[in-house]
Simulated assay, not measured.
Amino acid sequence: MSETERYPELGQVVQILQGREAGQFAIVIKKIDSRFVLLADGDKRKYDRPKKKNLSHITCTEFISPEVRRSLLETGRVTNGKLRYAINKFANEILADLKKGDQLDGERRCN
């Protein structure tokens, strides 16, 4: 597996596996180094106070929010509203399929 396959992208939705926020979804807003990323969800974890998370403690999904990614690349920031919108969109589109009995195909450990 190459480095680009394993490393989460900006704007990618991930599920937190370890810690107080285990089971919740967040969005990658910054890559720190080969082991850590900054996550925010726009609700409990605002853009101004992101959570530093080890890659081994998150699971990547296939969902990358184009709105969040574009905003981060163009301005270096993203609004909390846009983060909340992206997570809600992910929940409505992807997780709704899970309720029908499908597997979450794109789910894999990020590291």
Rank of each mutant, 00 (worst) to 15 (best):
G106I: 09
G101C: 09
R49V: 11
V13G: 01
Y47I: 14
D43W: 12
N111I: 12
R108K: 10
I32R: 13
P8Y: 02
S56P: 06
Q15P: 05
K52F: 06
V28F: 07
F36N: 05
E21D: 12
G42A: 12
D43S: 14
D41S: 06
L17I: 12
K31L: 07
I27N: 07
D105W: 12
I58E: 12
G42S: 08
D48Q: 10
A86F: 02
K99C: 09
L10N: 08
K89V: 10
S71M: 03
V68Y: 00
L73I: 11
R69M: 04
I16F: 06
E74I: 13
T79K: 01
L83Q: 03
K44V: 11
G11L: 02
S71H: 01
L73G: 00
P8M: 02
S34K: 05
N80L: 03
C110R: 06
L55G: 11
E93G: 10
F25D: 08
V37Q: 00
I94M: 05
K52M: 08
L55Q: 11
D41A: 07
L104W: 15
I87L: 06
F25W: 12
K99V: 09
V37C: 04
R45E: 01
K44G: 13
I64S: 05
Q12D: 03
I29A: 04
S2G: 13
G76K: 15
I29W: 01
K44P: 09
I32G: 04
N54S: 15
A22S: 08
K30S: 03
L17P: 03
V13M: 01
R84F: 01
K51H: 04
E67Y: 10
L83V: 00
T59C: 11
S65R: 08
R109T: 14
S34P: 03
D43V: 10
R20H: 02
S65G: 06
A22M: 00
E9L: 02
I87M: 04
Y7H: 15
V68F: 02
A86I: 05
S34G: 07
G42R: 06
G42L: 09
K30C: 06
E62A: 15
Y85L: 11
T4M: 12
K82R: 15
A26C: 02
T79E: 05
E62R: 13
R84I: 00
L73K: 10
D105E: 15
E3A: 14
D102H: 13
E74D: 13
C60M: 15
R6F: 07
Q103A: 15
V37M: 00
C60R: 09
K46L: 14
I64N: 03
K89C: 08
N92K: 03
D48A: 10
G11S: 04
R45I: 03
P50M: 09
L10V: 11
R108M: 10
N111L: 08
S65V: 01
K53W: 01
G19E: 04
H57C: 08
R84T: 05
A22H: 07
T75M: 02
K30T: 05
L104Y: 15
A40T: 06
I94Y: 00
K30A: 14
F25M: 10
D41P: 00
K31T: 02
L83G: 05
